[in-house]
Design a protein around this nucleic acid. Sequence first.
DNA 1: GCGTTGGCAGAAAGCGTTTTCTGCACAACG
DNA 2: CGTTGTGCAGAAAACGCTTTCTGCCAACGC
Lengths: 344, 344
Amino acid sequence: MVRKSASGRIGIADVAVKAGVSHATVSRVMNGNFTVDPEIAARVRAAAVELKYQPNPVGRSLALGKTDTIGIVVPDLANPTFQAILRGLSRAAAQDGYRVLIADSFEVSSEETILAGEARRRCDGLVLCAPRMSDAELEEIAPSLRPLVLINRTTAAAGVPSLVVDYGQGVQDIAEHLVELGHTRLAFLAGPPRSASNNLRLQGLEAFKAAHPQVEVTMLEGGSDFDTGHGAVDAVLESGATGILAFNDLVAMGLMSGLHERGLDVPGDISVTGFDDIPFAKYTTPTLTTAAVPITELGEQAWHQLRALIRNEESDAPGSRYQPKLEVRASTGPAKAARTAVHG
Amino acid sequence: MVRKSASGRIGIADVAVKAGVSHATVSRVMNGNFTVDPEIAARVRAAAVELKYQPNPVGRSLALGKTDTIGIVVPDLANPTFQAILRGLSRAAAQDGYRVLIADSFEVSSEETILAGEARRRCDGLVLCAPRMSDAELEEIAPSLRPLVLINRTTAAAGVPSLVVDYGQGVQDIAEHLVELGHTRLAFLAGPPRSASNNLRLQGLEAFKAAHPQVEVTMLEGGSDFDTGHGAVDAVLESGATGILAFNDLVAMGLMSGLHERGLDVPGDISVTGFDDIPFAKYTTPTLTTAAVPITELGEQAWHQLRALIRNEESDAPGSRYQPKLEVRASTGPAKAARTAVHG
DNA sequence: GCGTTGGCAGAAAGCGTTTTCTGCACAACG
DNA sequence: CGTTGTGCAGAAAACGCTTTCTGCCAACGC
């Protein structure tokens, strides 16, 4: 005869009856309120243990107006970058007793707004990860999502800190590295068109071109996964470039794989670079030259910013900027004597 | 003067006042209840839109006794296998309007019980992914976690379906493949000791050894990540084996990387196999022979099982068993003429 | 014309907590 | 001895929603 309430689950009322006290007293004991007689407190605790009472978090959330949960919206859970951010976020939040609710928009930007709103209402705060929506839309909904932290995106809306990676500087560093190796014809395998980080890369390349007018930089359409890289082999060869900047490590790996299949040597014939420095980059053959982004740390910092917002509404969180670090490995080498385009 | 209630957020009461009706009517309209006068319904909807009213999910959850959220507990969010399961689960659940709360136990088995309990109380159901806890503990807490679905683990507790991959058969298939290539000395780079899937692999190897007494199988200690494989090069060479079964693809990749650094050829000198067929396996050099597990589908099926349990308490879900499929790629080849151990 | 039904909206009772407010008992003080 | 204070537990309100129950009014049948 343990279960008393209709729902089947035992609640605070059952403990109260068992201990012969009121609901209020049970609540006080469970929350460590000291204005309760030690003897009664002990009786309540004993009853709670005996009944295996566990407070219902939903009722608690309603009363307290907080859920101890934060949400994260990502464009694609299959992307290692977002996985790493999620991991860092989850780990950091867990240390402060918060849980993470995930929402995957599957690169459908129209879904993002809805998902973000729904997630926010269930949580105490939200992390919006590289949202694909337009600047205008982002700025419009941002206020209603606060406390909100942005990753790899900025907005004019007030009180919304941003954590951004300086992809522009990153690609410049990589391009410089290739130039130092003697490459004069480069190609950039671009990422998803709606990706803000892709735009930052493009801006970086513009700056690079301005500083190095003698270097030819071809822009190639792309995406963000293996297959993009693997399928870009023809376009890459056609460009005649000897140094390829892939959008990220995945694309670079796909490209290297495709080049190997054609019997080309990396970096003997063509140098390939990635971006992000995912764990796999150290174990490719050849190991991949890339720009390391402290991705997991990014997730961790996102939590710290969000926590500041949740705890103290007034804290003006400035956000921060991360500099990628060039990791020179074995996929880049001296430029071969000038190649001519394979086709045309 | 939009916000009326003390909390700042606009609630059902504000809409009721604005539309000149009662709370109940607003609720009815918002939930598509047709026993309401169309004209009044329109007025309510107009008020809701104008006030940008969005129902508070917490209040809703408390009243309805459901959260439209499920939880998943994984031992390590950094592991691609669990990431893939999470992805499949999240995607499938999202299609039915459910969200996913994640809990990472960081391989600390004592945390699992707590995390699982907490997650369960916040959700309508739980997926326990390859839990590291003991059989006894699992069986004890399983009833309190229902609706519950297990992945890669079984329990005697009733009404808890399990989705398990037949790792035992998988390693046998791989071992057979190596034997057919002429290998007579094999080595198994084991995974985490507490991993149930590792035990299944070991059982499979025992069966294999019984069927092939002429083949020598060395057991080597290991883990589940790159570094394990990379650090196992010495032990592998020392074993004198020419065919290596790595615990999973990550370990295999680390091992291949280490072998390359020693100037050894895969598969010329040594054949290496993985397990799981993570997306990267197709893009390693050489491409990796492995046993493909439909991991994402596993997550998807987990949701289907869980959904059945949530919707109909009586549905006895049997769980299911997945057969890995051997994927022969370029990391395995004919055995070289018998090698002797490098050391000793 | 009156009683009965049925449609539809409001009142109110939950859901399971927390927390304020109320009230009792006892001690201290004038 | 009466008054004020203090400590502590219970009553009740609040959180924001759903849903049952109640009640009003009109229509219908006899």
